[in-house]
């Protein structure tokens, strides 16, 4: 029996104004699973991911990451296990060069400088941007920024990675590169996106969120081929599954 890594029970969240964003969410994700979180704009995908890493703890319900309950005192322990890639790479990168940014997490975890160096090199090589190591963050293209963001969390060697709209701003080549990197990452992945083709290429399981509620949970094949379900929730069949006219 596979080990449950993420356990969400009756998770609800509202903004201070009282507007509900997520309602009674239940989810169990096992190790090595690759789960796509789909939904139209404003469905609550990003909020859901942010709650799982404890960026907001004002939720009701229970969240356990690798059996550790998500609460203020357990945040450092939980965050060490999770790599989170932001939707907007400009919000993720802040050091002067790519190499410095990728080294940020390993240094925070107190690793010796030789180990930091090794991890930085490995992470950059994994996403094929080793040549950008000394380049200024401000001089990167959109695609390079996205790959650099991914490298910044791979250097943490996390147990699981969460990605928020990872395919935004990527050209076809960088997109393929990112898909390859994600598929090579053998651990748990949660990928929030409305780019269903990207989800089709990277996830075996898909959950559909609409209006803050979990509407469907199944294999990628079941969910992404269900045209009626997708259209009912403001989505469309992935282009790769649409018959060309």
């Amino acid at each position: 029996m596979s080990h449950v890594h993420i356990d969400v029970e009756n998770l609800s969240f509202s903004y201070e104004s009282g507007t509900p964003v997520l309602r009674e969410m239940n989810l169990h994700v096992s190790e090595n699973e690759s789960v796509g979180i789909i939904g139209a704009n404003g469905a609550g995908k990003s909020t859901f991911l942010k709650l799982l890493v404890g960026l907001n703890l004002n939720f009701t319900g229970k969240v356990r990451i690798e059996e550790i309950p998500l609460e203020k005192k357990t945040l450092p322990k939980i965050r060490e296990k999770i790599g989170y890639v932001f939707q907007d790479s400009d919000s993720q990168l802040f050091m002067t060069t790519v190499g410095e940014d990728v080294a940020f997490a390993p240094r925070n975890y107190g690793l010796p400088e030789e180990e930091v160096e090794k991890r930085v090199q490995e992470a950059l090589e994994k996403v094929h941007i080793a040549h950008l190591r000394d380049k200024s963050i401000f001089k990167l293209s959109g695609g390079e920024k996205k790959l650099a963001s991914l490298a910044t969390i791979l250097s943490m060697t996390p147990d699981m990675i969460f990605l928020d709209e990872p395919s935004v701003a990527l050209d076809p080549r960088n997109r393929r590169n990112l898909i390859r990197v994600l598929n090579e990452f053998g651990h748990l992945k949660l990928i929030a996106s409305h780019d269903l083709d990207f989800i089709w290429d990277t996830c075996s399981r898909v959950i559909l969120i609409s209006g803050g509620q979990l509407i469907a949970d199944g294999t990628a094949d079941e969910i992404l081929r269900d045209q009626a379900l997708l259209e009912e929730n403001g989505l469309e069949l992935p282009l790769s599954l649409t018959e060309r006219k």
Partner: peptide
């Protein structure tokens, strides 16, 4: 967001 990103990286 940048601060969140820093927190998430230890």
């Amino acid at each position: 967001d940048l601060y969140d990103s820093m927190l998430l990286r230890g």
